[in-house]
Simulated scan of single mutants.
Amino acid sequence: MTLWLMSFALGMDAFSIGLGMGMLKLRKKQILKIGVTIGLFHMIMPLLGMTLGKQISVHFGGIATMIGGILLLLMGLQMIRASFSKEDQPFLTPVGFGLLLFALSVSLDSFSVGLSLGIYGAKTAAVIMMFGFMSMILTWSGLFMGSKVQKWLGSYSEALGGCILMAFGVKLLF
Rank of each mutant, 00 (worst) to 15 (best):
M166P: 02
L104Y: 02
L108G: 06
M134Y: 08
V95H: 12
E158H: 06
F131L: 10
I80G: 02
F91R: 10
L24C: 04
L47S: 12
T93C: 06
I63C: 12
T139L: 09
K151M: 15
V170I: 15
T2I: 08
L172M: 09
G96E: 08
S112N: 11
A14S: 10
R27P: 03
A9I: 06
A167L: 15
T2G: 09
L165I: 12
E87Q: 07
S110I: 08
I38E: 12
M50F: 12
G162E: 06
R81N: 08
G98H: 13
A125S: 14
S116M: 14
F168G: 13
S105R: 06
K54D: 12
Q89P: 00
S57Y: 12
F174I: 15
G169A: 06
T65H: 08
M75H: 07
G76I: 00
G114A: 09
S116G: 15
G53D: 01
G132M: 14
M136C: 15
F144H: 13
L173D: 14
G49P: 00
L160W: 06
L72H: 11
G132Q: 14
T139G: 04
I17P: 00
Q150D: 11
L52P: 02
M166W: 03
V149D: 10
T51H: 05
S135R: 02
I34K: 03
S57C: 08
L143D: 06
A122M: 07
G169C: 02
K25Q: 07
R81I: 11
I67V: 11
T65I: 15
T93H: 07
L99Y: 15
G96M: 07
M12S: 01
F8T: 01
L40R: 02
W140E: 13
V170T: 12
V58L: 15
G49M: 10
S16R: 01
Y156G: 07
A122V: 04
F133I: 09
L92T: 11
Q30C: 04
K33C: 03
G62N: 08
W4K: 01
L153E: 09
T65R: 08
I128A: 07
G118D: 13
I164M: 04
K33W: 07
L26A: 02
G20N: 00
I38F: 05
Y156T: 13
W140C: 09
K54R: 15
G49L: 03
W152F: 13
V106G: 05
V106Y: 03
L138Y: 08
I67R: 04
Q78P: 05
I38A: 03
M129C: 12
L71Y: 04
G162K: 15
I63L: 09
G142Q: 07
G61F: 08
L72A: 09
L10F: 01
G11E: 00
L24I: 14
K33S: 09
T93G: 05
K171E: 00
G11F: 00
M43T: 09
L153R: 12
G118H: 03
F111R: 03
G132W: 02
D109V: 03
L47M: 06
S147K: 10
M45I: 01
G154E: 13
A159H: 05
I34Y: 01
L40P: 00
S57N: 15
L74C: 11
L32N: 03
M23R: 00
M12E: 00
S57V: 08
L108K: 05
G49N: 03
P46T: 02
